[in-house]
Simulated scan of single mutants.
Amino acid sequence: MANHIKLITAQGGIDMVTNIHSTANQQPDKTLHSDRLLRWSEVQPTVSICRSHAHQLAAKGLFPRPRKLVPGGRASAWVESEIMEWVQQRIASSVDGEGAA
């Protein structure tokens, strides 16, 4: 018997996913979203800096670089795991007294 899971998308829509594998004895997968591509509207609330500052930091190698969604296209997105790692580094450096980048 298949399990149906309701997922809320980033745009607020609802997707139904069929899970044909039993998950009764499995631990949750904590890496499920580690490689999602995030648009700036999802990145900005997490990092709390403006887009232009993020691009300045990325040019200096101090912030994750965005990836083009289509070769030669204009749209870009950031890898979620890289953004979360940057946030954790900011937290660690502020605790260690280094301050923000």
Rank of each mutant, 00 (worst) to 15 (best):
H33G: 02
S34E: 09
S34Y: 05
D35K: 12
D35Y: 11
D35A: 07
R36E: 11
R36D: 14
R36A: 08
L37P: 01
R39F: 05
R39M: 06
W40V: 00
W40Q: 00
S41T: 04
S41A: 11
S41L: 06
E42S: 03
V43A: 03
V43Q: 00
V43H: 00
V43S: 00
Q44N: 07
Q44C: 10
P45L: 02
P45T: 01
P45F: 02
T46Y: 07
T46P: 02
T46C: 09
T46E: 12
V47M: 03
V47L: 01
V47R: 00
V47S: 01
V47Y: 00
S48H: 11
S48K: 15
S48A: 11
S48D: 10
S48G: 09
S48C: 13
S48Q: 15
S48I: 08
I49K: 02
I49S: 03
I49Q: 01
C50H: 12
R51S: 08
R51Q: 12
S52Y: 05
S52Q: 12
A54L: 03
A54E: 02
H55Y: 10
H55D: 08
H55C: 03
H55Q: 03
L57D: 01
L57M: 06
A58F: 07
A58T: 05
A59D: 08
K60P: 00
G61E: 05
G61M: 06
F63L: 05
F63Q: 03
F63Y: 05
P64R: 00
P64C: 01
R65H: 06
R67L: 15
K68H: 04
K68N: 03
K68M: 05
K68E: 06
L69C: 08
L69W: 08
L69E: 08
V70Q: 15
V70P: 08
V70Y: 13
V70M: 14
P71D: 10
P71Y: 08
P71L: 07
G72T: 10
G72W: 11
G72E: 10
G73P: 08
G73V: 09
G73Y: 13
R74N: 15
A75Y: 08
S76N: 12
S76I: 11
S76W: 05
A77M: 13
A77L: 13
W78D: 04
E80W: 10
E80A: 15
E80I: 03
S81E: 09
S81W: 01
E82K: 13
E82T: 07
I83H: 11
I83F: 11
I83G: 11
I83D: 12
M84D: 12
M84P: 03
E85R: 14
